[in-house]
Design a protein around this nucleic acid. Structure first.
Lengths: 197, 197
DNA sequence: GTCTATAAACTGATAGAC
DNA sequence: GTCTATCAGTTTATAGAC
């Protein structure tokens, strides 16, 4: 098993992401990251310019993946119900692929937005919103979705329910990610009320 | 307008709560709190034993209020649909009454649970969950709610959507908190799909 | 690529004057 | 109740040896 170049960087980023997600970026010290990797804190600066740079790299790859998947979903021609379902699936797949980055984004966004360098996160959030609003508004226009609820409010309610699943959902053979996507979509599309058959 | 005793404590807690909510507990320094109040950091320790003690007081009054309101809701005899609606209303009223505490709880729970003193927050979360599960499970048993979705998953999806509204919802005359409660309940009970009348 | 050593700034908190 | 002054510990980050 030959080690690739850049392997070391990845090891460090993995440790950092786990710690950032568990205790928050501000409360995680470079010493703790170095301890976890098994080196001294000064050595981290051979690989990264700063603690911020580590956060940046973690969040960037997360957002890149998210944007790609959303673009793929929106490129389909399909019923708004299908597209909404596919956005849920795409989101949950990103949660699965980047659980720590997702948690950092959810927990520390306010803190990061206070740092000049991370102001680009505001645009990222806006692009995600645009994707959802496109689908929701199309559904309303087609008469597939109700028109008595504000689409931005619908988006925000669904967004938070979906992304915060990173805090509690652990996929298992009995309840895999695909099943959570089905159940979440079903709840949002059809509601909790029992069918009076 | 006579100043009550304890007024000063409240002033400090208000500043602290706003800063904790905006940047996170770990990233907020006692100096920043003191600056915001208009005193020096050492003077804070005449009113509080530690930074933790401030967080503790902010979260305690938040959780006390929440628990009281949930108890009042559950003491009613009513249809599960009504009780679910009332839990939503109670939650959003607590968000409105304690916006900063709500945000601190949502953003910094992981960090706080890492501090020995805040382990009681785990129980608080469990009690909230119990209240919701009681209502959801009763609704399923009565046949009012669907029985094909796991009640714990339903709870978590609704919980995160409701509580995270603290991050974006600002009540206005045109869209007051009661309206958000109606819309949220309506989405969860009836879903997004248009009625085919 | 890691370590040694350390700088420079910042942190929560304390003691005692006023 | 606030300020002055300060402590002891911690923080991110750097310079240079190995």
């Amino acid at each position: 098993m030959a080690r690739e170049p850049g392997d070391r960087r990845e090891t460090i980023l993995d440790s950092a992401a786990i710690l950032f997600a568990r205790k928050g970026v501000a409360a995680t010290t470079v010493r703790q990251i170095a301890d976890d990797v098994g080196i001294l804190s000064g050595s981290l600066y051979h690989h990264f310019n700063s603690k911020e740079a580590m956060v940046d790299e973690i969040l960037s790859s997360f957002l890149r993946d998210l944007k790609d998947r959303y673009t793929r979903v929106l490129s389909q021609k399909a019923d708004a119900r299908i597209l909404l379902h596919d956005l849920v699936v795409a989101s949950l797949e990103v949660v699965e692929a980047h659980p720590h980055a997702t948690e950092i984004y959810q927990n520390d966004l306010n803190y990061l937005l206070g740092i000049e360098h991370f102001s680009y996160l505001r645009n990222a959030g806006r692009e995600v919103q645009d994707a959802w609003l496109k689908v929701i508004d199309a559904g309303i226009a087609e008469g597939v979705f109700r028109n008595d609820l504000d689409s931005k409010i619908l988006y925000r309610l669904m967004r938070d329910a979906i992304w915060l699943s990173v805090r509690w959902f652990k996929p298992s053979p009995a309840y895999p990610i695909a099943k959570l996507a089905e159940d979440t979509t079903s709840l949002f599309l059809d509601g909790l009320t029992a069918k009076t058959a």
